[in-house]
Each structure stands twice: as C-alpha cells, then as structure tokens.
Amino acid sequence: MKRKKKAKRKKGLSFVFCALVYLFLFLPISVIVANSFNATTTKPYMSWKGFTFDWYIKLWENSSLVDAFGTTMIIAIVSTLLATVIGTLGAIGMYRYKFKGKALIDGLLYIPVVIPEIVLGISLLTIFAKINIPRGMLTLILAHVTFCIPFVIFNVRARLSGYDNSIEEASMDLGANRLVTFFEITLPVLAPGILGGALLAFTLSIDDVIISYFVYGQTKTYPLKVMESVKSGVAPDVNALSTLVLIGTILFVVLTQGDLFKKNR
C-alpha cells in the first residue's frame, strides 16, 4: 500500500516537473501570439491595451516584412536543395572511394558543427569582402549551404553505415548501369537519411540569425528585419506574421505526421 502511494506521488511530481519545463519552452511563444492581438499603438508595444485584429490587417500593408519572410523562405529552400544534393553525393563518395586529403575534408566537416556561429559569420564576411563579392542573396545562400552541408552528410552517413553494397552489385549484375543503379537502388535506400538531413538543414537555415547577420548586405531576411527595431520596440505585426507561420508549421506537422495523434497506432 505504502509503496503504491509513494509511486503515485513520484509520478505526480514528474508530471508537474515536465509541465513546468514545457511552460518554460512555450512561454515566449504564447507571449508572441498574445501580443499579435494587442491593441497598443505606442512603442515599445508591450503594455496590453485590449484585443484587436488590426496587426493582421497591417501585415498586408507592411510589404517589406512579408518580403523579408519571402527572402527567408527562398534562401532556406535553395540552400536546403543545394546542401542536400552536395551533401548526399559527398557522403556516398567519401564512403565508397579512397583518395588523398579525405581525412582533411572529414575534419573540415566538423568545423561548422562545433565552432561558434559568429566565427563562421565573420570569416565568410572577410573573405567575401576580400574577393569583392557584393553581399546579398548570393552570399546568404553560399553561407547557408556551407553550414548545412555537414548536417546532411552526418545524417546520410548514419544511414550508410548499415548499407549493404551487394544489392548494388546485384543490380549491376542484372544489367542495370551505374546511373540506373544509383537512382533505383542507392537513393531509395538512403532516402530516410537524406530526408532527415534536409529537414535539419531547412530548420537551421530558417532559424539562423548570427551568420546571416554578417553577410546580408541589402537583402534582409525576416529575423534581420526584426533585429533593426529590437532596441526601439518591435511592432506587433511581426508577432502577427510569426503567429501565422507557427500555425502553418503546426498544421504541416499534423497533416504529414497525422498518425502521431491517432489513438491506436
């Protein structure tokens, strides 16, 4: 009896603890959502002045904000595609072939993962300035591709470690050429790793502030646009846009991973 009671209390305690951690994780997001309905019109737009939908209407008029969000999406999509292709090919090549300098490339791949982002940001800034590449969309995409590639490679590599070469040999023995084998056999087997890597790359690109901050020039991404007005007060139309994006991503998860919420899985 006593033991049961103790177990129950322990369970209650861990429930409360987890609830508090989730509260911590979701608190600023709830604040963002709440403030998107805030009727305040004076800087720094923090005190609650009643409920309104005005900021959602204003969002339509503030095209620079929506444009910045568009820029973020373009950069994320293009960099994810490039990083996924380059990373997947690289992972396969490094798994299969021996060549000089392989250890060097392997070592370089860890740098974007462990080094503080600011060091990567300023090193790219200095080199772009040195060779006179104008800062803008191109430098942003180059930077994002660079820090996304290692994450794609590590994900694909994890999948490769359990890869059985003999199925490729079987495919070639049966008369398929190298390219057909690659598309019909190799890629489908690696698909989960590639997809996982791509998703991670996309998330990292969308979330990046620091590296973009040093290479953006005139092309502003969404967080950089927000950064401009951080000191004086960010207007709640930013919150309105963030709220819409959040609803979009949650819908996306529910639709693509719907089985997560089904009862008898």
Partner: peptide, 18 residues
C-alpha cells in the same frame, strides 16, 4: 522541437516583451 520553428531572435524578443 516545435518552439524551435519560430526564429530564435523572435522568441528571445518574446521574453523581452514578457
């Protein structure tokens, strides 16, 4: 994971608002 789909700068600003 879900909170991290909102950009970190914007979430930190959420803390400032709070």
């Amino acid at each position: 994971i879900i909170p991290f789909w909102t950009n970190s700068l914007i979430r930190i600003y959420g803390w400032r608002t709070f």
